[in-house]
């Protein structure tokens, strides 16, 4: 069975290495500060007993007052997983750091989140729409999108 790491324990370890980075935890979820996302990602990937070498998926949810960006992480060698979440407030083109330098698998998924949800990833070398065409008005998965 893929072990879901305990969020509280992982948050404690993240805060030990990067003080103040993890703000909340619940079950297998850990919320991190968007500013320290890249550091946390690097920590999770490079710490040998965590070894989160695979980014299963990136997604975003529009909770109207904020966007939540969700990273499903997996270690194939150790067969455990964790869900990393971060919040971005503000609806006018929210931005967050791209993790493409850490996980190559973020490439198309970050483009998809930008295309459909309108969260821009800073540092992505090719931040273009992927499913819709350039010039499409708005981002359809937002709750205030009107057809």
């Amino acid at each position: 069975m893929t072990l879901e790491l305990d969020g509280a324990e992982l948050a404690r370890r993240i805060n030990e290495a990067l003080p103040g980075a993890a703000t909340e935890w619940n079950g297998a979820y850990v919320w991190v500060e968007p500013e320290s996302l890249l550091d946390v990602a690097r920590f999770l990937k490079d710490t040998p007993d965590l070894d989160f070498s695979t980014l299963r998926g990136i997604t975003a949810v529009d909770y109207v007052e904020h966007f939540e960006i969700i990273y499903h992480l997996l270690s194939m060698r150790r067969n455990h997983s964790v869900v990393l979440k971060t919040r971005r407030f503000g609806r006018e083109e929210p931005t967050i750091d791209s993790v493409i330098g850490i996980w190559k698998g973020a490439d198309l998924q970050e483009r998809e989140v930008w295309d459909l949800m309108g969260v821009r990833f800073e540092g992505h070398p090719n931040m273009k729409r992927v499913l819709l065409w350039e010039g499409f008005p708005g981002h359809p998965l937002r709750k205030d999108f009107i057809r």
């Binding site: 299963r56 997604t59 190559k104 698998g105 490439d107 198309l108 998965l141």
Partner: peptide, 16 residues
């Protein structure tokens, strides 16, 4: 559902 995200293998395999 409030949100239904599909992690599709065909799409993500195109990364490489």
């Amino acid at each position: 559902p409030y949100r239904c995200k599909i992690r599709s293998p065909s799409f993500i395999n195109m990364n490489v």
